[in-house]
């Protein structure tokens, strides 16, 4: 979507002539298989398609959110082989053979993941748009053993922006979620 407004990328200059359509459309689609939330999905994507767009637009897993599409807000955070990454900063074709977990795959059926339950308990959100990313970043933070105290939580959750400013409650949720995961 963003490729169509190159003018913005070079703020301060006036737009140049419109690029030809062919140069925007790029190479054709390729067949790949992605493992998402324990399920294998066959899909056909252009190489330039981000993991975020593949999840949202092809697999219809819309729990992963697009807030900036350039790795500055953290709303699109997913787990790839248990590590938290911004799914907007990586291409779908790079994740063949990886284990991808989105927010939809975190609960076990009706049973919320302990971190999800902690976010509910502590009201760790207002509008909720950043929440999938916050929860997954928190899960990764605990799983990777980086949960060493409040300062660590603040530091390591600082890539997930909450514009509603529910940081205080998010902090409490992560603290409690870590206890529940132990």
């Amino acid at each position: 979507m963003d490729s169509a407004i190159p003018e913005l990328a070079t703020a301060g200059t006036l737009p140049s002539a419109a690029p030809a359509a062919a140069s925007i459309l790029g190479p054709g689609e390729v067949q790949i298989e992605l493992e998402v939330n324990g399920e294998r999905h066959e899909l056909s994507v252009e190489p330039r398609v981000t993991l975020l767009d593949a999840l949202r637009e092809r697999l219809k897993l819309t729990g992963t959110k697009k807030g900036c599409d350039q790795g500055t807000c953290g709303a699109c955070t997913v787990l790839v082989n248990d590590r938290a990454i911004d799914s907007c900063l990586t291409l779908a074709v790079m994740h063949v053979g990886d284990r991808i977990t989105t927010i939809e795959g975190l609960a076990s059926g009706e049973q919320l993941h302990p971190m999800q339950a902690a976010f509910v308990e502590h009201d760790g959100f207002q509008c909720g748009y950043c929440t999938p990313g916050q929860v997954l970043s928190a899960v990764a933070l605990v799983r990777e053993g980086r949960m060493t105290g409040d300062d660590a939580i603040r530091e390591q959750m600082s890539g997930n922006i909450c514009r509603c400013g529910a940081y205080e409650n998010i902090l409490a949720a992560v603290r409690d979620g870590a206890r529940r995961m132990a």
Partner: peptide, 10 residues
């Protein structure tokens, strides 16, 4: 709507 917000269902 807390449940929907933490599960991605919202």
């Amino acid at each position: 709507d807390a449940h929907d917000k933490v599960t991605g269902a919202a």
